[in-house]
Design a binder for these strands. Structure first.
Lengths: 237, 237
DNA sequence: GGATGTTTCAAACGAGCGTTTGAATCGTGC
DNA sequence: GCACGATTCAAACGCTCGTTTGAAACATCC
C-alpha cells in the first residue's frame, strides 16, 4: 500500500510542491474559466500545468476540492479586503454616516484591484467566480454561502444605515440584484457579445466596467420603494 | 443500414412523437435546471422522460441540439412577446415618449408571465436560461447571441429615446447590467441563500422578485453619468 | 550513506459517457 | 392484410472520465 493521502504537510514540503500546487491552481483557474468545471478534464488540466495526472488527487484530494481551492485562494482574501476597507471608511468618517456610494466602493474596489492584478490571475479568477455563482452543484453552493456569509452580513448592516428608507427585506433583495449584476458582468467579456454593439477600445475594459457599474448600482440601491403593482400583467391577452 | 436521421418530418409523425419529443424536452428542462448541461447524462434524462436512450439522438440529433431546442421552445416566443408588447406600448402612447419604466415593463412582463405559467415550465426554464447566460460553451454563446440580437437592438432604440442623457455606449453597458441582474435573479432561488437572511412567505416569490427588480433597474438606467473616477484605487496599499 | 518521509510517475481500474446500429414494432394507406 | 415509412428498442461501440496503485525518484536528517 502506498503513502496515505497527506493529512497534514511536513515542513519539508513547501519549497518543492508549492510549485506543483501553484501550477495546478493556475492551470485550473485558466481552464475552469474557459470551459467550466464539468467540461474541464483532469487530463487536459494536468497536461496544461505540466504535472502528472495523479498530482491533483495527491495534492488536493479530488477535482471538487481542487475547485474549492481555486476559489478560496482569491476569494477569501478579497472578501477580507472588502471588510477591511469598509471598516477603514467607517473609521475615517468618524461618526458621520457613510454614503451609499462609499459603501459600494468598498465592495467593488477589491474586486477591481484583483481583476487588474495579473499576478493574482487578473480577469481569469473573476470569470470563474461569476460562473460559480450560477452553478447549481451543491458543493459549490454551500461553499460559496460559507465564504460570503460574513462579508454580506457586514455590508448589509452598513447599507441599512445608509439607506434608512429600505426595510431589511427590501435591502436583501437589492443586494441580491447587486451581486447579480456584478457577477454577471465580471463573468463574461465574451457575454458582452450578446449586445450587438461591441464596446470600443477605452484603455482597459475591466476597469471601465466597474466604474460604469458603480453609479448604476448606487442609483438602484437608492431607488424609492416601488408600489409593488407597477407591473400590470392583466394588460395582455 | 437503418433509417437515416429524419431530415424533415412526415405528416404522420406529430400525434405520436410529439409526445416523445415533449417528454424529452420537459425532462431536459427540469434536469438541466437541476444539474446543468454537462452534468446531466442522456441516460438519466431519457430514464426520467420514460423514453428510450436512443430517442434523443433520433429526434434531436445530439445532446447539444437538444439543449438548443430546450432554449428555443420558450425563449423565442418570449422575446417575440417582448417586442410585441413594446410596440403596443408605443402605439398606445401615440406620439408621446415612453417612460423608462414602461419600456422596462415590456422586457420584464413576458418573463414574469412565463415564470408564472406552469404549463410552460414555470420557473424551470428561466433558471436554465440564467445558467446558460454564464456558460462559456461556444455553441451556447453563439446561439444566445442570435436569439437575442433582434430583441436587444429593438429595446436599445427605445431606451435611447427615453434616456437622452445617455450615450449609445453607456446605454449598452447599462443594458448589460440589466440583463445581468435579471438573469442572475431568475437563475436561482437557491442562490438566494448566498444572503444569510431568507426571504419570508410573500405569496409567490418569483412574482415579487420581478416587482422589486423593476424599480431597482429603472433607477439604475436613469442614473446620471458617473464621472468615471469615483473609484479611487490609489487609496489602498 | 542509509533511513525516512514526501513527491512524482506510468499504468491501470471500473464506470459512465454520447452515439450508432440493425432489428422489432407500430400506424397508416392501398 | 400487406407494404412502407416512422418510431422504438436493446445492445453494443469506442472513448474519456476521476481515481487508485505501487514502484521509482527525490529530499532531508542522523
Amino acid at each position: 500500500m502506498p503513502v496515505q493521502r497527506p493529512a497534514r504537510r511536513s515542513p519539508a514540503m513547501d519549497a518543492l510542491s508549492q510549485d506543483t500546487k501553484s501550477r495546478i491552481l493556475d492551470a485550473a483557474e485558466s481552464l475552469f474559466m474557459e470551459h467550466g468545471f464539468e467540461a474541464t478534464s483532469l487530463r487536459q488540466l494536468t497536461a496544461a500545468a505540466g504535472v502528472n495526472l495523479a498530482a491533483v488527487n495527491y495534492h488536493f484530494g479530488s477535482k471538487e476540492e481542487l475547485f474549492q481551492a481555486v476559489l478560496t485562494r482569491r476569494l477569501d482574501p478579497m472578501n477580507q479586503e472588502r471588510i477591511a476597507l469598509l471598516e477603514r471608511y467607517e473609521r475615517e468618517a468618524g461618526g458621520r454616516q457613510l454614503s451609499c456610494e462609499k459603501i459600494l466602493s468598498a465592495m467593488l474596489i477589491p474586486a477591481l484591484r484583483l481583476s487588474r492584478d495579473e499576478r493574482r490571475g487578473g480577469k481569469h479568477f473573476l470569470r470563474v467566480l461569476g460562473r460559480a455563482y450560477a452553478d447549481p452543484a451543491p458543493f459549490i453552493r454551500t461553499f460559496l454561502s460559507a465564504q460570503y456569509a460574513e462579508m454580506i452580513s457586514r455590508f448589509k448592516d452598513a447599507f441599512l444605515k445608509a439607506l434608512p428608507h429600505l426595510t431589511k427585506q427590501e435591502l436583501t433583495w437589492r443586494l441580491h440584484f447587486v451581486m447579480g449584476a456584478l457577477s454577471y458582468t465580471l463573468a463574461g467579456t465574451d457575454a458582452l457579445k450578446l449586445m450587438a454593439q461591441v464596446i470600443p477600445d477605452e484603455k482597459d475594459n475591466d476597469e471601465v466596467l466597474l466604474e460604469r457599474l458603480a453609479p448604476f448600482l448606487a442609483a438602484g440601491l437608492k431607488a424609492p420603494l416601488g408600489d409593488a403593482k407597477r407591473l400590470e400583467l392583466a394588460a395582455g391577452d
